[in-house]
Amino acid sequence: MNAFWIILTGALVATSCGLLGTFLILRKMAMVGDAISHAVLPGIVIAYLLSESRDVLPMLIGAAALGVLTTFMIEFLYQKARLQIDASIGITFTWLFAIGIILISLYAGQVDLDQDCVLYGEIAYVPLDLWITESGRLLGPRPVWILSGVLALILLIIILGYRGLKITTFDPEYAAAVGISTVFWHYLLMSAVSVTTVVAFESVGAILVVAFLIVPPATAYLLTEKLHNMLLLTVGLGILTAVSGYYLAVWIDGSVAGAMAVSSGVFLLLAVLFSPSTGVLTQRFRQQAIPVPAQGYKER
């Protein structure tokens, strides 16, 4: 049963992150997830100072608020200050992370208060984190319920907003020209990313979230030429990664999150080598199949 809950949690995170990550990759903002994982630190410290506790809920709210602020700052630096998008991401998260460190050293020096101890969860402990109602009924692991809720929200956004996200990602200038608000769709996507990553950090830890946000969509990108296929393939790959990663962890008797992230990398490598259109080996085989014209004497 434990195996089931761990794999299900992994699959839920993979699906949520993969769907959002697809649009992040196409917007060349793949590193936003990584940025948020660092930038939430001041949010956690402020939430601790205000609530004077290390309970999960205030930490989550503080972190999610900072996640959204991160995306605002990135957008501000990119649009108004006219910096490159990767520079804007790099500046934002190092700066916010540094503010978090200063806050800790000033106000919370004695308390263990970084993401590692108050926010990041561990996927292997998911089956222990049970949700028990007041009447004593056992409803299964709490993270599974929360992550299912998040996934439902994301599915709603992507299914209803598919066309809006697609046109503002592909050609924002044209979208703006026909009166579609690129700002609205940008912040809708970015808020979804902030909330999802923070909630997922709390259940499964940072590395797995960042990996699921980037690697399965990147793999799917190599395998297909249509956006909706890319989304479906990302989900399939994410679930496959969760299953294979779990059994890899059992086999090597190591970290589950690490094994899942490694397994996603293995799928990516396979796609790099064997993708039908761009695969390194596929192209080599194809070249051999085409008869090469004889070398001219000029070559010698």
Binding site: T169, F170, E173, Y174, A177, T224, E225, K226, L227
Partner: peptide, 13 residues
């Protein structure tokens, strides 16, 4: 818009 304004590797037909 100008042709260079979009990413032509975008997965779209």
């Amino acid at each position: 818009p100008q042709r260079e304004s979009v990413d032509w590797d975008f997965p779209i037909s």
